[in-house]
């Protein structure tokens, strides 16, 4: 299965949200990374046909998705940012409702299987109004998986979840990428580092680079440094460098930073992680946002 974005652009009046996005995706987990306002949700909404692109097209196995209509939606699972469910419904009731909307004939077994997967079996008869934020998110994932979609789109699925819920979520998504195209938009890099096959970095509406987490880490090899320094100096450095963070160990303190050049004489190269990649590519934008 091949999903292609061809020259996708989106303008809201004079404001440009996306510029010539070109991508080709196959089965696997694709993490769409970018800061708030980068255009992730716009791209997700265009992909799910909720929003019209100003220009360009998206094809699935060569066929334009807007022309596929119900056939495309039959292959699609979508979890929007902050999905609202109905407080007067039970978890099972919501699943049954969306199973009907997805055209499923006998969904009971599938509903039970998915509620088990997201660990909501015991709470399936409780009203949604009594669910926690994490439970609602898990229910959302279950709803998006109801029709066993070939294309799964998750928009900021871990926003607002506690660490335990996020770990549970990663475990669920990690199991899904074998036979599906999973696109996961987020700005929380730690959520996707271990489960993504491919990362798509979106900045100011443009895809700036793509590749596996290891490839991207390789891109910034030699640009990540640890610099031992005093607490005072470290705090001063951090104030002027949003691309750095303080790491404390039992007997020392050093600054972990990403830059093209070695920041201090005593800096030593350090192994990169996906967060460093994110900081490297989005530092400028983060600075601009902070200035704003």
């Amino acid at each position: 299965m091949e999903l292609q974005f061809v020259n996708i652009s989106k303008n809201y009046g004079k404001k440009t949200a996306l510029t010539n996005v070109n991508l080709t995706l196959h089965e696997g987990v694709h993490a769409l990374l970018g800061p708030n306002g980068a255009g992730k949700s716009t791209l997700m909404n265009i992909l799910t046909c909720l929003l019209k692109a100003t220009d360009g097209k998206i094809t699935l196995d060569g066929e334009e998705i807007t022309a596929m209509g119900a056939r495309f939606r039959d292959m699609l699972g979508y979890l929007p940012q902050n999905p609202g469910f109905y407080n007067s419904f039970s978890g099972y009731g919501v699943m049954k409702y969306f199973a009907d909307l997805k055209g499923m004939k006998k969904p009971q077994d599938r509903i039970d299987e998915l509620l088990e997967l997201v660990n909501l079996t015991e709470d399936k008869k409780r009203k949604i109004g009594h669910y926690s934020g994490g439970m609602k998110r898990r229910l959302g994932i279950a709803v998006s998986l109801l029709n066993d979609p070939k294309l799964l789109v998750l928009d900021e699925p871990t926003a607002g979840l506690d660490p335990k819920e996020r770990m549970r979520f990663r475990n669920i998504i990690g199991k899904l990428g074998f036979d599906k195209i999973v696109i996961l938009a987020t700005h929380i890099v730690s959520d996707v580092e271990s489960i993504s096959d491919n990362c798509l970095l979106l900045k100011n509406g443009e895809i700036i680079t793509t590749g596996s987490a290891d490839d991207l880490k390789e891109h910034i090899k030699g640009k990540v440094f640890n610099t031992p320094m005093s607490q005072e100096k470290a705090e001063e450095y951090i104030l002027n460098n949003s691309c750095a963070n303080i790491i404390k160990t039992e007997d020392s303190l050093f600054v972990h930073s990403v830059s093209d050049e070695k920041p201090f004489e005593n800096s030593v190269p350090a192994p990169a992680n996906l967060e460093d990649v994110y900081m490297y590519y989005f530092n400028e934008q983060s600075k601009t946002e902070e200035e704003k």
């Binding site: 119900a70 939606r73 609202g84 109905y86 009907d100 909307l101 029709n147």
Partner: peptide
């Protein structure tokens, strides 16, 4: 209420969500 709760996105991306709802 579907717009306010953003359930509209889930409904309209379901196969029969358009017509049925």
């Amino acid at each position: 209420s579907e717009f306010q709760s953003n359930a509209v996105s889930l409904i309209l991306t379901s196969r029969d969500g358009h017509k049925k709802t």
